[in-house]
Write a protein that binds this DNA or RNA. Structure first.
Length: 816
DNA sequence: GAGTTTGAAACT
DNA sequence: CAGTTTCAAACTC
């Protein structure tokens, strides 16, 4: 299946390329008529039954081909098996390349539109090339400039995505209406806000924000344009849509869930998950397309050109859609708020939309903060909150611009990761809000991952980091999720540097968080200088941060070289030293099917524990701490691990008991956060070479509510399936051992053990490749992180928090 | 917050 | 590889 997906992806890529080329040569409308496009559309029928599809249909009286297309694209990627992307480097790479290609093609098309809207286009271009061609920005009206700044500034690594966004913006700007001052202002404002948000957030978030922005901008524009001029957009909306599609492409299948939820609520289209946002983006784009896109000549003369005959269908669609817009339906859809509020407040809407997006991304970290502010404030407060956010963001903005991409990563990443590591408290707040709003906290790892996949190089790392932050999201309050130490470790805490810069308010907050939240990993090393695995921060691949109480700490960006060298040394001694300790294989992706899907999901400590006195019932036990059961690899004595005993006795008879025990434990833990967390470290350690190198931020832990607890219950673990993210250090993993081999070796064994322990349901849901452990109990066990591939992707069903694969686990040696 | 326990990491 | 030491987190009071 994966292979199929990969092929499909390639195929689509090719198609998109052709389309892009077509677009470049002619009007966007023309493109739609290309056979390729039709081809793409065809598969949609399969998904007509999907909630999304239905919802889309309900939005517009007319079932448009486009909507179908949307469904198609969404379904094809989301439902099908995005996970494959994560599991398979190949796929990801393909997608990535595709994404890039898309851009490359898209860009050329712009000039067409620029003819009349030179400035606008230039603006867009400026956005894209801001760094490179300042000239391009020229007199571009503010919006463009702002956009450019917003996009570019934070983007050390998301340039591509930024480009994408820029393109989208470009399209917006391309519309005559955009020229309107009001529109520009609004956009600018929006951009600024987003920019601020982006800054504070990891690239990943940034990306999201941008997407949102685009979306919002489109939305806004659409609304305004509706009244002012229906005709007018000379942009290649088709292209835009495609871009959106691309974004969707990267989304994980998990998104499907999010979407379902989202779309099932008429008012909440945009709000929910990241994935949703993207989807929304697409959808909106589509709507826009329907609304305002008129066939335009290649020259890009837009407004006055009457629709072509063949475009009648479109025109009709536009009308219908327009009604929707007029009725504020769109707004409703976007904001999920009553129309009355929205109607007269495009800006507010925009903000709201963004706000919700933030909510969606709350996990992403910084956004949460923003949400924090904005959420409370409500629409009326938006402006204020915006200001706050902006300022905050700026303060948080860590990163120092770096020339050398590889180089900058380290510090930058560290900072990001750290900053991401918001305290669980904040997350909680946000989460509640989000939940309240009706959206589910569905972190789609896939989305994240998908996003990440788009980027190359360091970006993955950042993404992973972002994911981590998201993971952190799990606050104690969230029964479902629990922050994991590892996660926190992985993400690290807000760097002191950042803190120092932040406003008093922020600082205060952070300090509080630091003290209270488990989210941030804080070490207390006194002698190790935080350069040994004793140090949790170091072990997690993150820099120590202010909250740490370490002494003589060398695990800081300023000692990057030392850190890297040390890490390298340690790795030379034990290549898996920084690999996730717990390998979780969770969700299976039936469709994706690899053999792995056959095996039950499970997680195990890669080396096993060696407990003598704790009975594996305390956090001294790494297995217990990681929320996983002991396994054959463990040399523990008197194992009583609630998550699974060494002898596997947990399976049946003990199961009930265990369940009970676990329940208590969990409850307790939930309450006091003491509960062990599952380290979901995934896959990251895959092939170093693979683009998607997994980075195991070992820190990702899921709540302990393990699958074992109940057969009938949806395994919580599924929620937890969080792809591990990589550590801060090093974006790329080089020279990582190949875990695959070990995996195959032990796979059966592991399966057996896990199966015994896992309830049937879990087994089904879990991904096969379970943590693989070395056979010899005595020897150091090395599990193949690789196994985690199957990890979250599948998380379809009720999984709430799913972090997907994040590029490989951080290796300090990456530079090498 | 200090002291103890514990087991991983590091060392021999 | 086994034994010992070092270390810092987890735990207890």
């Amino acid at each position: 299946m994966q292979r199929e997906m990969g092929e499909e992806g390639e195929k689509l890529e090719r198609e998109s390329e052709s389309e892009s080329e077509s677009e470049a040569c002619g009007s966007g409308v023309t493109v739609m008529e290309t056979p390729d496009r039709n081809r793409i559309t065809t598969p949609v029928s399969k998904f007509e039954d999907s909630p999304v599809f239905n919802y889309i249909n309900s939005l517009s009286p007319i079932k448009t081909v486009k909507s179908i297309r949307i469904s198609q694209s969404f379904n094809s990627f989301s439902f099908a098996s995005l996970p494959s992307v994560f599991t398979s480097p190949h796929v990801s790479s393909v997608k990535e390349s595709r994404f890039l290609k898309r851009h490359s093609f898209s860009d050329p098309s712009r000039p067409e539109f620029s003819s009349d809207n030179g400035n606008k286009v230039g603006t867009s271009e400026g956005v894209i090339d801001v760094a490179h061609n300042p000239d391009e920005q020229q007199e571009n009206f503010d919006p463009g400039s702002c956009i450019g700044e917003a996009s570019v500034e934070p983007t050390y690594e998301c340039s591509k995505l930024a480009i994408e966004v820029s393109q989208t913006l470009n399209y917006e700007c391309g519309s005559p209406d955009c020229t309107t001052t009001a529109c520009c202002e609004i956009e600018t404002k929006c951009v600024s806000e987003l920019a601020g948000t982006s800054k504070s957030v990891v690239p990943y978030v940034h990306e999201v924000s941008e997407t949102i922005f685009v979306e919002s901008g489109m939305h806004l524009e659409g609304i305004r344009n509706m009244e002012q001029n229906r005709k007018g957009v000379g942009c290649d909306w088709d292209s835009l849509i495609f871009d959106a599609t691309d974004l969707l492409t990267f989304e994980s299948p998990n998104n499907a869930d999010a979407f379902k939820g989202t779309f099932q609520h008429p008012g909440m289209r945009i709000c929910t998950s990241l994935a949703s946002s993207e989807f929304t983006h697409y959808e909106i784009s589509d709507l826009q397309n329907t609304l305002s896109v008129h066939p335009v000549g290649a020259e890009g003369h837009e407004s006055e050109n009457p629709p072509r005959v063949e475009e009648e269908g479109h025109l009709m669609e536009i009308k219908a859609t327009r009604d929707v817009f007029d009725g504020t339906s769109l707004n409703k859809c976007v904001d999920g708020e009553p129309s009355n509020q929205i109607d007269n407040e495009p800006v507010s809407n925009l903000h709201r939309g963004m706000r919700k997006r933030c909510l969606v991304f709350e996990m992403a970290g910084t956004c949460i903060k923003h949400l924090d502010h904005s959420s409370h404030s409500g629409s009326s407060m938006l402006s204020q909150s915006d200001v706050n956010i902006e300022s905050i963001d700026k303060q948080l903005v860590p990163i120092k611009p770096v020339n050398d991409s590889s180089r900058r990563i380290l510090p930058g990443i560290g900072l990001h990761l750290n900053s991401l590591a918001k305290t669980s408290k904040e997350y909680n707040v946000i989460s509640h809000e989000t939940l309240a709003s009706g959206s589910q906290l569905i972190i789609d790892p896939g989305s994240a991952a998908s996003f990440h996949s788009l980027n190359t190089g360091q970006e993955p790392l950042n993404k992973s980091l972002a994911v981590t932050s998201m993971e952190r999201y799990n606050g104690p309050s969230e029964s479902q999720f629990q922050g994991t130490e590892d996660a926190s470790a992985g993400s690290g805490c807000i760097p002191s540097e950042d803190i120092s810069q932040s406003s008093p308010r922020k600082k205060r907050r952070r300090l509080e968080d630091a003290g209270e939240s488990e989210g941030c990993k804080r070490c207390n090393c006194k002698k190790s200088k935080c350069l040994k695995l004793y140090c949790e921060c170091f072990a997690a691949g993150v820099y120590c941060v202010e909250p740490c109480s370490c002494q003589d700490c060398f695990n800081k960006p300023i000692h990057e070289d030392t850190v890297l060298a040390t890490r390298k040394q340690i790795e030379s001694r034990n290549p898996l030293a920084f690999a996730p300790k717990v390998i979780r294989n969770s969700d299976s992706l039936p469709e994706i099917g690899d053999e792995s899907s056959k095996t039950p999901a499970s997680a195990r400590h890669k080396r096993g524990c060696n407990c003598k006195k704790s009975g594996c019932l305390k956090k001294y036990c790494e297995c217990y701490q990681g929320g996983v059961g002991c396994s054959i690899n463990c040399r523990c004595e008197g194992c009583k691990n609630a998550f699974g005993r060494k002898d596997g006795s947990v399976s049946i008879g003990a199961e009930a008991e265990l369940e009970e025990e676990e329940t208590e434990t969990h409850d307790k833990c939930d309450a006091d956060e003491s509960l062990p967390k599952i380290l979901i470290q995934n896959s990251m350690e895959q092939n170093p070479d693979s683009i998607l190198q997994a980075t195991p931020l070992r820190g990702v832990r899921a709540s302990v509510q393990l699958p074992f607890s109940s057969k009938n219950k949806l395994p919580r673990s599924s929620f937890l399936s969080i792809g591990s993210s990589s550590g801060f250090y090093g974006s790329q993993r080089v020279g990582k051992p190949n875990f695959l081999q070990p995996q195959s070796k032990f796979e059966k064994l592991v399966q057996t053990v896990e199966e015994e322990e896992m309830p049937g349901i879990l087994q089904q849901n879990c991904s096969p490749i379970s943590g693989i452990k070395s056979l010899s109990p005595n020897s150091k066990r090395v599990s193949s992180p690789h196994c985690d591939f199957g990890l979250s992707p599948g998380s379809r069903s009720n999984r709430k928090l799913i972090l997907q694969s994040i590029p490989s686990f951080p290796s300090l040696t990456s530079k090498d």
